[in-house]
């Protein structure tokens, strides 16, 4: 298998062509798909599980599954959505194996952990989106991330996660409400735009 080295010409090929080659057992083509898709896949999983190492493990698992089941993919054009569904299913299976506890306020405190942090050597406060997401229940967070980061519609999320459409809508409504309420507290002025739009640096570091 030649995941590490690209074959000349594959890098410029349309994805449907590369997928078709990979389906026929071309390892270099599969390697090219991994190169193209690993960044968004890992980014999505990091946002979902808030742990970079675990996210990479799950991404590996999803890609291995993709390698095994790629010949069963009917439409090469649907590869992106298919791979994303594999990743989300891997995450949901992980949740079933090891149910995650939502980040709760520390004992003796009434408020949730602060959502701003400063990077070493950088005195400016940064809004930690992952810390805000950590306060959502895992399934709720999954729906919110798929909606806002991946731009998926409610129907697509329901199809991807296997949740009923009403549940997806309810998760997104509740999750975005909680997220907005928590993040709004850090806006420069009451009722003003969220810090990201106000120019405050935002970090995406996993909690």
């Amino acid at each position: 298998m030649t995941l590490a080295g690209a074959r000349p010409g594959l890098g410029q090929a349309a994805e449907a062509v590369v997928v078709a080659l990979a389906r026929s057992g071309d390892d270099a083509a599969f390697g090219e798909l991994v190169r193209r898709r690993q960044a968004p896949l890992r980014s999505l999983l990091r946002r979902l599980c808030r742990d970079a190492a675990l996210a990479d493990d799950l991404a590996q698992e999803a890609l291995l599954q993709a390698w095994q089941t790629l010949p069963s993919l009917r439409s090469p054009a649907a590869f992106g959505a298919w791979l994303r569904r594999l990743a989300v299913n891997t995450w949901l299976q992980h949740l079933r194996r090891r149910p995650e506890r939502t980040a709760a306020p520390a004992p003796g405190t009434d408020s949730p952990p602060p959502l701003v942090s400063s990077a070493p050597g950088d005195p400016s406060p940064r809004l930690d989106l992952d810390a805000a997401l950590a306060q959502l229940a895992p399934l709720c967070r999954t729906c919110v991330v798929l909606a806002y980061q991946e731009g998926m519609s409610h129907d697509e999320i329901a199809a991807t996660t296997g949740l009923p459409l009403g549940t997806v809508k309810s998760h997104i409504r509740r999750g975005s409400g909680q997220l907005r309420a928590r993040l709004q507290a850090y806006a420069p002025s009451p009722g003003g735009p969220l810090p990201a739009e106000a120019g405050t640096p935002v970090t995406g570091a996993c909690a």
Binding site: Q38, A39, R42, S43, R46, R47, L127, L129, D130, V145, A147, Y148, Q149, G151, M152, S153, H154, D155, E156, I172, S176, L179, R180, L183, P193, L194, P195, A196, E197, V202, T203, G204, A205
Partner: peptide
């Protein structure tokens, strides 16, 4: 992908997600 898309409903949170992207 549809009129129901949440990204269209709340563009501020969507912008926050986009700006929080960390390149690998």
């Amino acid at each position: 992908a549809s009129e129901e898309s949440t990204a269209a409903l709340d563009s501020e949170i969507a912008a926050l997600f986009q700006s929080a992207e960390e390149p690998l």
